[in-house]
Nucleic acid binder design. Structure first.
Lengths: 137, 137
DNA sequence: TTCTATATTTGTAATCATTACAAAATTAAA
DNA sequence: TTTAATTTTGTAATGATTACAAATATAGAA
């Protein structure tokens, strides 16, 4: 089990205080946070933290392959440090995002001639069990 | 083969000149246009057209189920009047969007208890054959 | 350690797609 | 026609993200 700062160093980026805190937060978060969520969560313990730093940092993490970016079409990007192949569900009522234990299909074989696949995303939208139950409201 | 204005009427919306033109354009377009692309394409033949009308109209079309909205994470939404189950490929180099003849998997059966699936999207990113060929550049 | 160059962080200002809103124009109904 | 409702239009706001430059922190050389 590697310590967080080592993981950053292995990716060739300097483990600054801000980066390590943001990375830790992403690692333990299960809610696929937005930049705003990360910023608000860390602000109490790092009062000088800047939103721009969070933006810079998640962009950097994306580039070195520490996080994947999720876009549920709400005009806000979400970040996921879980890089294992899985899919995502967003509840259209409450906006919560859940992991789905389903691998996005590998379609490299089925692509038109000459096409190269880099990444696949499988997004599912609907109602989560909680919102489904209260559907009358 | 229904005429375009009839399709709009069947969906319960008034077939105004603007709506019919926008709908026709979406039906024949294969490039999954953005609002800006629709606007620019129609402006020469309808000089009074407003961007806002295009925004209003595609939103209306989405609500009545005439188009689906695609989000490739570029900060712009694209619109597709082809509602048959298929997936989408975006070239990371040139930005072109291609239809893939692949049905997004139906996972209603595999969902956690109580969850309800409304829609699924399968997005693939990579290089199209043209950009792959010129990869050196 | 101190100096210096480089990297990182910060805050503010710009960008840009989209949305809000209200006035003008069009259409439908009476 | 007259009136009411719908649609279109243009401009102004919104809000996430990016650009940018000044301030701060860090690493390495001396």
């Amino acid at each position: 089990m590697q310590i967080h700062s080592e993981i950053l160093e292995n990716k060739g980026i300097r483990p600054s205080v801000q980066r390590v805190r943001i990375f830790k937060f992403l690692m333990k978060s299960k809610e696929h946070p937005t930049v705003e969520m990360i910023f608000n969560a860390l602000l109490p313990e790092m009062p000088s933290l800047s939103r721009t730093t969070v933006y810079n940092t998640v962009e950097l993490f994306k580039e070195v392959g520490l996080v994947q970016v999720l876009d549920f079409g709400r005009g806000v990007l979400r970040y996921d440090a879980d890089l294992s192949p899985h899919s995502h569900f967003e509840c259209e009522r409450c906006g919560a995002v859940y992991d789905l234990d389903i691998k996005p299909q590998d379609i490299s074989k089925k692509m038109p001639r000459g096409f190269k696949v880099h990444q696949t995303y499988f997004y599912v939208f609907g109602l989560c069990s909680h919102c489904k139950k209260n559907e009358k409201n």
